[in-house]
Design a protein around this nucleic acid. Structure first.
Lengths: 185, 185
DNA sequence: CTAGATTGTCTAGCGGTGCTAAGATCCGGT
DNA sequence: ACCGGATCTTAGCACCGCTAGACAATCTAG
């Protein structure tokens, strides 16, 4: 029986190795560099081993995304506790800037991990709940709609900044504008 | 000599055929379906003909994006003249919703078409200028920063809505919130 | 009108991709 | 010692972006 759990632990470890390696490869060279061949070579197994753990390549980036949601929920909570709406916004934008590949996996790439669905994983609700907790004081009667707007604004700032489509210099001023706009109704 | 211009006109027509077909294919089945083989077959030429007009596949989606900027600048202007900031925002979000593949080519896919650079094509400045013209009344002393924020918010709403990450029902309410936030400083 | 050069287009191929069937190998239980 | 099942790899398919070289058509010069 203990061999059974040991086997399972070995499998789980290898699964984590795959996800970690995929994430490192994506952060280092972008998701287009994460191919089954390169990933298999990096973890020192053949390609079919990957398919023993994940049904396809998208499932691997989804696993990375789920890790990201855990981390994002945590940093949002810390930021919110430190400085409310502004602290949360800073934490969100910092996370997106520091982990662009993970952020892409969470919000830009594949489509099969959705908010607002019945099947939405708990951690996605938790993450959204963090934003809502920071926004609620400014729209107590309908926090959900303002949360969507605030989140969209953060998402827009994050993706356009990551894609070098905003001036790199005015980060703080943009944040000031956004906080002022949402915070003073 | 007239044969020269006729030849050039034929080339230009074929170039437009390629761009138009790529756009239709992308709108119908997404950009991942726009491959050199399928596109070549759709225009009834072999693949190398595509490379006579464009240096690679990215250049084709860039050509589609440039068409999109022309159209977007026009609808933004119309919307702004009709109803100021709100009219522009409605026009922006409607364009993104009705032409998701073109919108992706403009703002989500490739990276070699950037704002705020020295080499930025005039039409990109014009489009950004449209947004700035609508925003300036609300921040006369530094319109550019608020424009970036407002544009980011619109971009976030557009992409998250296109990716089914926002409730499909509260479109108008979200817009109301955003206009109220930016419009009343 | 013919011969040669130029232009235009296509066939065929390279190295890469995601993914999988089928064979090889290892390992525990009898 | 052997067998059966789990595990891993080799080898392959159909597709991808992209390009070299063969081929055909057209234009130019004599």
């Amino acid at each position: 029986m203990p061999s059974h759990t040991r086997r399972e632990r070995a499998l789980e470890e290898r699964r984590e190795l795959i996800v970690r390696t995929a994430r490192e490869l994506a952060e280092a060279e972008g998701w287009e560099a994460v191919t089954t061949r390169r990933l298999a070579e990096a973890v020192d197994y053949s390609q079919p081993v990957l398919y023993g753990h994940f049904k396809n390549m998208d499932a691997i980036s989804t696993a990375v995304a789920l890790e990201g949601f855990e981390e994002l929920a945590a940093v949002l909570r810390t930021g919110r506790e430190r400085d409310g709406l502004r602290g949360l916004a800073e934490a969100y934008l910092r996370y997106a800037e520091e982990h662009p590949a993970v952020y892409d996996a969470m919000f830009v790439r594949h489509t099969d991990l959705l908010f607002g669905q019945v099947e939405t994983p708990e951690i996605l609700r938790t993450t959204f709940g963090e934003i809502m907790a920071a926004v609620t004081p400014f729209a107590p009667d309908d926090p959900e709609t303002l949360t969507e707007v605030f989140w969209s604004s953060l998402h827009g700032l994050a993706t356009l900044a990551n894609g070098s489509r905003l001036r790199p210099t005015h980060h703080q001023q943009r944040l000031n504008h956004l906080i002022a706009a949402i915070g003073h109704p």
